[in-house]
Nucleic acid binder design. Structure first.
Lengths: 368, 368
DNA sequence: ACGTTTTGCCAAAACGTTTAATCAGGCAGT
DNA sequence: ACTGCCTGATTAAACGTTTTGGCAAAACGT
C-alpha cells in the first residue's frame, strides 16, 4: 500500500515565500491582492504560480485570529432540524452564506432543553468567533433570546424578540390564508369552512385571522358554524370535516389548517361520496412535501417561505455585521415574508346551488 | 438608548491572569485542567471564579491555531439538504458531534455543480482546518471523492468510494425489503406483487433484490407477472397498481417501491372498490414523513436510517481522527445500516382463497 | 545544616496569518 | 550634486492561545 500521498507537509505561507524568494508579506499581499500595496506584475505572477504548484491553502484559523473575524455565521436551531421543513431553512441560509463566502456552523438545541443549555450552545458558537448568529425557532410569538447573543449581531427566525432588539423574520401566515380564501371566493364559493387546529399556537391564530380577513374582503359574513377544529393531523381533519360535510347546508369549500388535516378531509369527502373538487373544494396550508403534490387530486395550498427566511437571515446578518459597531442596535420592525399560494387541482368553481351558473363536475378532466 | 451593554471589551486569558495575579500559563492550566501540571487548590479556585465573573470565553480560533486542531467537522452534502430526508442526516451528525464537543460546518453542493465546484467546497472546509469531512450524497453506487478529501480523514454517506479508500455507510435497502416481504409472507400472503420504480437507481436494484430474496426465503416462486413499474411518484404507483389489481388473479399484497407510489396504490384500490387492508395489503418504503402516518389506513413501510447514518459518520470520523496518522488508510468494508420495518395498519392476513383460514375483513376495527 | 525532592508557578516560544511602518534604490527636477 | 518622490519590496509586531522547559521556595530525609 503506497503511503506517499499520506505525507502532506501542510505548506504554509512562508513555504511559498521561501520558494518564491520573497517575504511573507509580499505573498500575503499578492494572494489577497491587498489594496494600497504594490507588487510588480512579474513577482505577483511568480508568487501566484508557486502557490498553486505547492498546493498552498491558507489557514483560516490563523487569518481569523489576526483579522478578528471568522467569516463564519452560526445557525442555532431549536429542534427545528427535526421537522421536515427545517432543511429548507438551513438550505436557504447555507446558499446565501456561500454567496457571501461565509460558512455556516450549526448547532441544534432540543426543544425541551432548558434556557441554560441554549445559552451554552450560543456560547459555543461565540467561542468559535462567529461573526453573527441566527436563532431559528419553531413558530413562537415571542422569545427571550439568550443574553449571550447580545455579544454579537443576531437575527431571529420564526419569533419576535421579547426585548425588541433583535431583528426578526416570520411567515405572513395571515396574508397567505387571506389570499387562499380570496381564491376560493373568486371561484364562486360563499360557504367556505375552516377546519382549524385545536391546539393553540401562533399559526392557529394567524391562519384564523387570515381566514376571517379573507371572508371580509370578499364580503362574506362570518358564520361560526363553518368553523370546526381537530388535532392538527389527518385524523383531526377527518373528524372535523366529517362534521362539516355531513349536513344539508354543507360548505362548498374547506380551508384546512394544514396539509395533514387536508388529507383527513379527503378521506371524509370520499366516505361521504363527495368528489373533490367537483362537490367540495379543499385547500390546505404548508405545501408540505410530499403530501401536497402526491395526494389526488393534487392539493392547492400555501407555501411557507422557509428557504427565503433562511436566506433573509444571513443576508440581513451580513448587513448588520458590516454596519459600524452599535448601529445594529436600532432594531427595526419584524419582517413578514409572504406565503405564496400554490394552486393545484383541488379547487373548482363552486357547484351551482342558488346561482345557476353551471352544474357540478364542471370541467377538470383527470382519469377517475 | 443605553449602549452600556454594547461595549464588550472581549476579555482574554491575560485579562484573567492579570486580575488573578498569576501568569497566563497558570490560567490556561487550571481552566483546561491540563494533566501533569500542578496548581494549588487556592489559586485554582481563584482563577476559576475570576474567569467566571469576568465572563471569560476562550477564543477557539487561537486555541485551534496553537493545537492544530479545530474541533470542527465538515459536512459536505450533495444536494441532499433539499430532500425532506436530509434533515435527519444533518440532525444525526449534529447530535453526535455535540456529544463529542465538536461543531459541524456544513456546505451544500448543488447536484448539478461540476466536480470543480465540489472540490472548491472541500477546499473551503479544509482551509477552515476541519478535523474531518463527511461527504453525504444522494444514494449512488460509487463516487470519486474529490481528491482534496485525501488531506484529511473522511467518510462517505450513501455511496462507495470508487478508490475504496474512504469508509462508507449505506442503508441496507435489500435487507429491509426482504424483511417486509417476510412480514407479508408470515401474514399468509403468497401472491405478493412489487410495484417498482421505472427509473434505474441503486435503490431500485436494492429493493428488487430484497423483494426476490424475501420471496425465496418464504419459499414463494418468483412470478414476473407480479412485477410492475411506474414513475416513482403517486401517479406511477397508481397506474402500476391499477394494472396489477385489475385482474382475476390479483395479488393479495403489493410492495410499493416507495411511500409516494403507495399513495397511488391506495387510490387504485379505492377506485376498484378494494378495501385496504382487508382486500389487499399495501406496504411502502422510506417511512416518508408525513405520508406514511397520515394516510388511511396508516402505511406499513420501511424506514431509512438517515439519522443513524449521520451519527455513524461523525462517530467513525472521530475514531479515524484519533487513530495515529495514516492508520485510517486501511479502509474497511462499507457499513450497511439496517432499514427497520415499521408496522402500521395497512397489512392484514391474506384473505382466504385456497386456504380457508378466515374470511376477508378479519379483525382490524377502524371507523369506516 | 545540608542535599534532594516536591510543589507551585512562570517566561518565552511557538501556531500561521495580516498589517503598520520602514527602507533601499532609481529617477526627475532643481 | 543635492533634494524629494515614487516603486517594490521588507521587518517586526501583533492576534490569543498552548506548551516546553525551567526555576525558586518549601518540604523532606538524614
Amino acid at each position: 500500500m503506497n503511503n506517499e500521498e499520506t505525507v502532506v507537509p501542510k505548506v504554509g505561507i512562508r513555504d511559498v515565500a521561501r520558494a518564491a524568494g520573497v517575504s511573507v508579506t509580499t505573498v500575503s499581499h499578492v494572494l489577497n491582492d491587498t489594496p494600497h500595496t504594490r507588487t510588480s506584475e512579474a513577482t505577483s505572477e511568480r508568487v501566484r504560480s508557486i502557490a498553486r504548484e505547492l498546493g498552498y491553502t491558507p489557514n483560516r484559523l490563523a487569518r481569523g485570529l489576526r483579522t478578528r473575524t471568522s467569516e463564519m455565521i452560526g445557525l442555532l436551531t431549536e429542534e427545528i432540524a427535526t421537522t421536515p421543513h427545517a432543511g429548507r431553512i438551513i438550505l436557504g441560509a447555507q446558499e446565501e452564506a456561500s454567496r457571501h463566502n461565509l460558512t455556516l456552523a450549526i448547532i441544534n438545541s432540543h426543544l425541551d432543553a432548558g434556557a441554560e443549555a441554549r445559552r451554552a450552545d450560543a456560547r459555543a458558537l461565540i467561542e468559535r468567533q462567529v461573526d453573527g448568529i441566527i436563532y431559528a425557532t419553531v413558530f413562537h410569538h415571542e422569545v427571550s433570546v439568550p443574553r449571550e447573543l447580545r455579544a454579537v449581531p443576531a437575527v431571529l427566525i420564526g419569533a419576535l424578540d421579547r426585548q425588541g432588539v433583535v431583528p426578526a423574520v416570520l411567515p405572513d401566515e395571515a396574508g397567505g390564508a387571506a389570499e387562499l380564501v380570496a381564491l376560493l371566493a373568486e371561484a364562486g364559493h360563499r360557504r367556505i369552512a375552516f377546519a382549524n387546529s385545536s391546539i393553540e399556537v401562533p399559526a392557529t391564530q394567524g391562519r384564523l385571522v387570515g381566514y376571517l380577513r379573507g371572508l371580509e374582503t370578499a364580503g362574506i359574513p362570518r358564520d361560526d358554524r363553518l368553523i370546526a377544529s381537530g388535532v392538527s393531523e389527518a385524523a383531526g381533519g377527518y373528524t372535523a370535516c366529517l362534521e362539516l360535510l355531513d349536513r344539508a347546508d354543507r360548505p362548498t369549500a374547506i380551508f384546512c389548517y394544514n396539509d395533514r388535516m387536508a388529507m383527513g378531509a379527503y378521506r371524509a369527502a370520499q366516505e361521504l361520496g363527495l368528489r373533490i373538487p367537483e362537490d367540495v373544494s379543499i385547500v390546505g396550508f404548508d405545501d408540505q412535501a410530499p403530501i401536497a403534490a402526491s395526494v389526488y387530486p393534487a392539493l392547492t395550498t400555501v407555501a411557507l417561505p422557509h428557504y427565503e427566511m433562511g436566506a433573509w437571515a444571513v443576508s440581513t446578518l451580513t448587513r448588520l455585521i458590516q454596519s459600524t459597531s452599535t448601529a445594529w442596535y436600532r432594531s427595526t420592525d419584524p419582517t413578514w415574508l409572504p406565503c405564496p399560494v400554490v394552486v393545484r387541482e383541488s379547487v373548482s368553481p363552486a357547484p351551482a346551488r342558488r346561482r345557476g351558473v353551471r352544474g357540478p363536475g364542471s370541467g377538470r378532466s383527470g382519469r377517475r
